[in-house]
Every structure is written in structure tokens, then in C-alpha cells.
Nucleic acid binder design. Structure first.
Length: 316
DNA sequence: GAGGGGAGCGCG
DNA sequence: AAAGCGCGCTCCCCTC
């Protein structure tokens, strides 16, 4: 609501700015320093394993899975997470893992090829949807394609896409139609997933872990639609959760051997954060990358980006 | 003073 | 009438 008004007026913009800054202060700047344990000089978060419906971990006391990164002011908080003397922080991120899982699950030829050929999948999608060479894709087209890609994972409608991109509903509808023309397997997969959920009352990840959806047969259309969106999303979000957990187990087993001076500190859904002695950075990087990439074998490669730095922001 | 519930905002 | 998935924390209002 304010978001829209802020495009035209100063007051709503200032209100949003104030809220954002006070959020940073109350939740992070004021709080994190007093959560440092005196015995270790560190913050010790808890990771819950049986909270999120899709099988993700959740982090509490404090939540270290929502440390700011999207704005320059927020990133200053992230810079406060530093490696101890002689060590580096290393972040290892899966690249577009949920979209890759969608390609795997749908077996859609176009999406599979977008991933096998392109280094930038949103750009590749833009080229397909807007029927233009990859090199001619504009920033605007890429932005639209990215919104479509993310929207699909969440079960978004043309209405939601229109709002997201600030375009008319008809235009958004055209984008969606062109997308499904190019990637018909994705539409089929989504239709089949809704039917499966309706008939069985659950959906499952690649590895067979289930999410039950009691709302899928509700007479209330709003509840039913929400359950359908959850049914679309859960196999992707849940399979991604399964994969990174497998990688964590493999990495833990490997690090326990003790050849490397390194520890796994955090998991942030598609990212693992390590602290590693400087001399072991290269070995850790290679070992982590290999284990994350081979935690599952899909129809598309799983790519991992690695970053190293003295603080968590630098490691990205 | 404790705790519920909603709004709002931080992240993937 | 609503319209985008999954979380946790702070603030505020309210009740007990």
C-alpha cells in the first residue's frame, strides 16, 4: 500500500525509510551485540529441524537466516560477522536451485536447455519469452523474466505478476502465455501437481518426503487456491531443502576426518557458511563445492558459487 | 507482567 | 473477495 504511494509522494517514502531503519536498529544493531555469549565471544543460534512445512531448517534466538543483505545500510550489519584471527569466512551458494529442480521435475525441454547452455537463466528465459537473441536481451526484459521465474515457483497468477512488474493485467497474461508456449512441460507439470494433490491430499519432494495439504479439498475457494499454490511450491522448496541437508551430512562427515581446520557455521536455505584457516581455503572450497554439487543427481547440473572474505558480506 | 494476535519487515 | 511460497522478530494493542 505505502509501497505504491511512495512512488509518487515523499511522506509514504519517508515512513517506509523510517520503518526500515528502525527494524535494522531494534532487531540487529541493538540486539546482536547482547546475544554474544561471554564464554565463547560468539552468537549461538539454534537450528530447528521440524518447523517449516517444506522441510527447511529454521533459525532462532537469534534468527541468523534473515541477516540483511539487500540494502547498503543492511549490509553493514552483515559486515559485523567476522572470521577469527588467521581464518576466513567462506559462503557457498547453490545457483538457482529451485528453478533447476523445476526443470528436473517438469522435464521441460526448453527449460532444461536454458540451464544446460546458459550461464544466466533469467536472461535465457527472457530470450525465449521475448523471442530475441540472448545478447539483445534488455535489462527490462531480464527483470520481467526473473519475476516470471520466481512467480512460477510460488504459484503466482497473472494478477500478481502485473502488480510485481507494475504492468497491466492483460500484458502480464501475455507474458505468462508466452512463457507456457515456450515451456509447455512446465504448465503440464503444474497441472499434474494440482491434480495429484487433489487426489492424494499431499505432494512430495524428489526424495519422497511429503507435505499434506488438508486445504486442497476445502469448499472455500481462497483456502483451496492457497493449498494449490503450496502444492506447486513445496516440491521445489522441499527438494532444495533435502538436497542441502544431504550436502551438509556429507560435508560434516568429511570435515570430521580432521584434515582441514574448518567448521560449518550456518545454513541459510541455499547457502552454507564456513570458517576456515587461511591455508585451507582452497581445499575447503573444492571439497564443499564437490559435495554440494553431487548431493543429488538431477537432469540439470547443480552449480555452486563460492565467496571468501574476512566478513560475511565480503564472502558474497 | 505474561501471552495472544496482527501488522510490518528482515531473509531465501 | 482475493490475488506469491517458506520462515522469525519487534512493536503494538488487547485480555487476563
Amino acid at each position: 500500500m505505502l509501497q505504491e504511494l511512495a512512488e509518487k509522494y515523499d511522506l509514504p517514502r519517508l515512513i517506509l525509510e523510517q520503518r526500515s531503519i528502525s527494524k535494522l536498529k531494534s532487531t540487529y544493531t541493538d540486539k546482536l551485540p547482547i546475544q554474544v555469549k561471554s564464554t565463547s565471544g560468539r552468537i549461538h543460534s539454534s537450528f530447528q529441524q521440524a518447523i517449516a512445512a517444506t522441510g527447511r531448517l529454521s533459525s532462532t534466538d537469534p534468527n541468523l537466516q534473515n541477516i540483511p543483505i539487500r540494502t547498503p545500510e543492511g549490509r553493514r550489519v552483515r559486515k559485523a560477522f567476522i572470521a577469527k584471527e588467521g581464518f576466513k569466512l567462506m559462503a557457498a551458494d547453490y545457483s538457482q536451485v529451485e528453478l533447476r529442480i523445476m526443470a528436473h521435475l517438469s522435464r521441460d525441454a526448453g527449460l532444461l536447455s536454458a540451464f544446460s547452455s546458459a550461464e544466466d537463466v533469467h536472461k535465457a528465459t527472457a530470450a525465449d519469452v521475448f523471442n530475441t537473441p540472448v545478447d539483445s536481451v534488455t535489462a527490462e526484459q531480464r527483470r520481467s523474466a526473473k519475476a516470471i521465474n520466481f512467480g512460477l515457483i510460488y504459484g503466482m497468477s497473472a494478477f500478481g505478476l502485473a502488480k510485481q512488474l507494475n504492468i497491466s493485467r492483460g500484458e502480464a497474461q501475455q507474458y505468462v502465455e508466452r512463457y507456457f508456449e515456450r515451456y509447455p512441460g512446465v504448465r503440464t507439470y503444474m497441472d499434474e501437481t494440482r491434480v495429484f494433490a487433489d487426489e492424494n491430499g499431499f505432494v512430495e519432494t524428489i526424495f519422497g518426503r511429503r507435505l499434506y495439504l488438508p486445504g486442497i479439498t476445502a469448499s472455500n475457494a481462497m483456502i483451496r487456491k492457497a493449498a494449490q499454490r503450496a502444492a506447486i511450491n513445496a516440491p521445489m522448496q522441499g527438494s532444495a531443502a533435502d538436497i542441502i541437508k544431504q550436502a551438509m551430512i556429507d560435508i560434516d562427515r568429511w570435515l570430521r576426518i580432521g584434515d582441514l581446520d574448518a567448521s560449518m557455521l550456518l545454513q541459510v536455505h541455499d547457502e552454507l557458511v564456513f570458517e576456515v584457516r587461511e591455508k585451507d581455503v582452497e581445499l575447503l572450497s573444492e571439497g564443499v563445492k564437490f559435495r554440494m554439487m553431487t548431493a543429488a543427481s538431477l537432469e540439470v547440473p547443480l552449480l555452486v558459487d563460492i565467496g571468501v572474505g574476512n566478513n560475511w558480506d565480503q564472502a558474497h
